[in-house]
Design a binder for these strands. Structure first.
Length: 272
DNA sequence: AAATGCAACAACCGCCTAGTT
DNA sequence: CAACTAGGCGGTTGTTGCATT
């Protein structure tokens, strides 16, 4: 037989996370680090499934996350990476320090898509939009098919982790071939060669040492449109950035009045 | 000031892959 | 090797807050 089921899904809570739940999860993660998600809700005293905890942690509670809108540079990077990788948000996110796949996906759907369309660039294929009599949906359908073919071609040489490397290699080696590529190439100094990969030891190192790029950048260049978020940005916290909800209950509360929990952060293994 | 519409984003759902027994 | 699950990913939906009427 295989593993035990992740959760019985009976009596589990759904919907938005409460402050209390966030607090419990953060406390647990700080104390124990990331382990088997299946046991996290049980040990943390949460009526959530492990999947939900993982999502909440990776997308919102992780201390190394940047908050607020993507900067112009980040947007360019996303467009460039999307032109090469398609909707592979997690892979795109891995090139952007402190950003999650969910965040990038949302930003793409709400901001970048519109921007590109306004500029006459198709957000799917990164090529100039061609007005067709049959309407956009049909056109997009064709383009989606073309993209799929393109992606397949990119993936052909190998599979699994090796294909991942291949895709990344292509990102670095490809010359501008699409409209958005051309647009991006107009921006001097932007090059995917310079895109840093986030490795777990980077994160750990940044938490353990000096304030990171995320803590210095996010408060200024990526300030959120919401007033509450900018309120959160006013509060300084050494070497890591916490979401607004975290600020609300106070650091003493969160850290349990000890610095040992921060030390515990060193043991965290953060994916991406 | 209230109602309505829209935009942004957090969270869920379902599928896929890799790992375990 | 087959059966089964955990974890991860991408698509979609639901909720919330803001802007406009």
């Amino acid at each position: 037989m295989g593993r035990q089921p992740c959760c019985d899904k009976v009596g589990l809570k759904k919907g938005p996370w409460t402050t209390e739940e966030d607090k419990r999860l953060i406390n647990f993660m700080l104390t124990n680090g990331q382990c088997c998600w299946r046991v996290v809700p049980k040990l943390a005293g949460l009526l959530r499934c492990g999947k939900s905890c993982r999502l909440r942690w990776t997308n919102y509670l992780r201390p190394d996350l940047k908050r607020g809108l993507l900067s112009e540079e980040e947007e360019k990077m996303v467009i460039e990476l999307h032109s090469q990788l398609g909707n592979r948000w997690s892979r795109i996110a891995s090139h952007l320090r402190g950003r999650t796949d969910n965040e990038i996906k949302n930003h793409w759907n709400t901001h970048i898509k519109k921007k590109l369309r306004k500029m006459g660039i198709d957000p799917l294929l990164h090529k100039p939009l061609i007005p067709s009599a049959s309407g956009v949906p049909h056109q997009e359908q064709q383009q989606a098919g073309a993209l799929a073919e393109r992606m397949e071609e990119q993936e052909k040489p190998c599979s699994g982790s090796s294909s991942e490397k291949a895709a990344e290699g292509q990102v670095e080696e490809n010359t501008p071939s699409t409209a958005s590529d051309a647009f991006l190439s107009k921006s001097p100094g932007f090059c995917t060669d310079e895109v840093p990969m986030i490795l777990s030891h980077d994160i750990l190192a940044s938490c353990a040492s000096t304030p990171t790029a995320s803590s210095s950048i996010s408060t200024s260049s990526t300030c959120s449109s919401s007033s509450s978020s900018s309120k959160a940005a006013e509060i300084k916290f050494p070497c890591m950035e916490w979401p607004e909800s975290t600020y609300l209950w106070g650091l003493d509360d969160l850290m349990d009045g000890t610095s040992s929990s921060i030390g515990g952060m060193k043991n965290l293994i953060i994916p991406h």
